[in-house]
Design a protein around this nucleic acid. Structure first.
Length: 327
DNA sequence: AGCCAGGACGGTA
DNA sequence: TACCGTCATGGC
């Protein structure tokens, strides 16, 4: 008999911070969901991006399909995301994890819609990019790529903090250790699906609990501090968005210990989807520009501001597209 | 072996 | 405001 087994530490009140409904059109026949996607969307282009994450532990990819456990309230459906045609995304529930309640299925649709940023109209970006020194090649090579995001705020903040000042491969290793030590997993058909630890769980840890994972002491402190803020309800997506202004949201984040300009903009870009969020200190961005410009030295901040002066309100998409040149 | 990595902090001038 | 030493470890 195949059953889902869930780790003991499952008395976990945290609800991931995601929309309860997709904004766009979608269908639900009780067994599977279909999301309509904009014309400027390419499933395979987004899959190429996701396939490149080395050592990713929160989803896996097989035969051009994504498999992932999505925690919604007290349920943890395991979904398969596929696209027979480029213009529609199909979500199937795995095994016996089909949520019986319609609102849970809707939340899953909302999660996927947000993950792939299906609501943004990319046409203005493509228009401005056509004549842009750095972007014209990016938008033709990666046409249909979305700003694939991190819908949950806590996960996005942790990923940003973990990634500070270390190479990406090591960052993935640290994330995996964090998830496998303090997250929970659902097992189905011999596969294990990991779910990111809750803020409550991390908030209750001691610095040494994280430091043994080879996180620096400071990173351990930062993660616990952010977890406490979120667990106490003091830091939410809603509050950040309620500032009504990108710069105010950035200030709110930067005031938190461990979150500097890079992390703040990274999270505003990948989680809150602020179009003008711009992690200008990002080494990856610097390397991409260096690569495209064929220069030996990294661009200065002034040069980047010059090159990006026409990206107004599309800085986050520009950054995301330029990252694609790095792998 | 040595430089670099999807930075941030705390102190100093 | 602007700069600098420090944190600390793995990847290549």
């Amino acid at each position: 008999m195949k059953r889902n087994t869930i780790n003991p530490q499952w008395d976990d009140p945290y609800l991931i911070d995601v929309p309860s409904l997709p904004q766009g059109s979608w269908e639900d026949n009780g067994q599977q969901l279909k999301l309509s996607v904009p014309k400027e969307f390419s499933f395979s282009e987004n899959m190429k991006y996701l396939s490149n994450a080395p050592n990713e532990c929160l989803f896996h990819i097989k035969d051009h399909r994504i498999y992932k456990a999505v925690p919604i309230g007290q349920e943890t459906p395991i979904i398969e995301i596929s696209a027979e045609h480029e213009n529609v995304i199909t979500i199937r529930f795995f095994g016996n994890t089909t949520p019986s309640r319609q609102e849970v299925r809707a939340a899953v649709a909302g999660y996927v819609s947000e993950w792939f940023d299906l609501e943004t109209d990319l046409r203005p970006f493509y228009d401005l990019a056509k004549n842009d020194l750095l972007l014209h090649r990016a938008v033709s090579e990666f046409y249909g790529l979305r700003n694939v995001g991190i819908p949950d705020l806590f996960e996005a903040l942790c990923w940003g903090i973990i990634g500070q000042q270390i190479n990406l491969a090591f960052a993935y290793t640290l994330k995996r250790r964090l998830v496998e030590n303090f997250g929970r997993s659902v097992e189905l058909d011999g596969e294990q699906y990991w779910i990111f630890p809750s803020p409550h769980k991390i908030a209750a840890l001691a610095v040494s609990d994280l430091a043994v994972l080879q996180m620096t002491t400071k990173k351990s402190e930062y993660l616990i501090g952010v977890a406490q803020l979120i667990a106490e309800g003091k830091l939410t997506k809603k509050r950040l968005l309620a500032t009504g202004d990108y710069k105010k949201a950035e200030k709110m984040l930067v005031s938190i210990r461990g979150i500097g300009p890079w992390t703040a903009n990274y999270v505003l870009m990948r989680c809150l989807r602020i179009p003008s969020a711009f992690p200008i200190d990002d080494v990856g961005l610097h390397n991409a520009i260096k690569h495209l410009m064929g220069t030996e030295q990294k661009p200065t901040k002034e040069e980047i501001l010059q090159l990006s002066s026409t990206w107004t309100n599309w800085e986050s998409y520009a950054t995301f597209y330029l990252w694609r040149f790095l792998y």
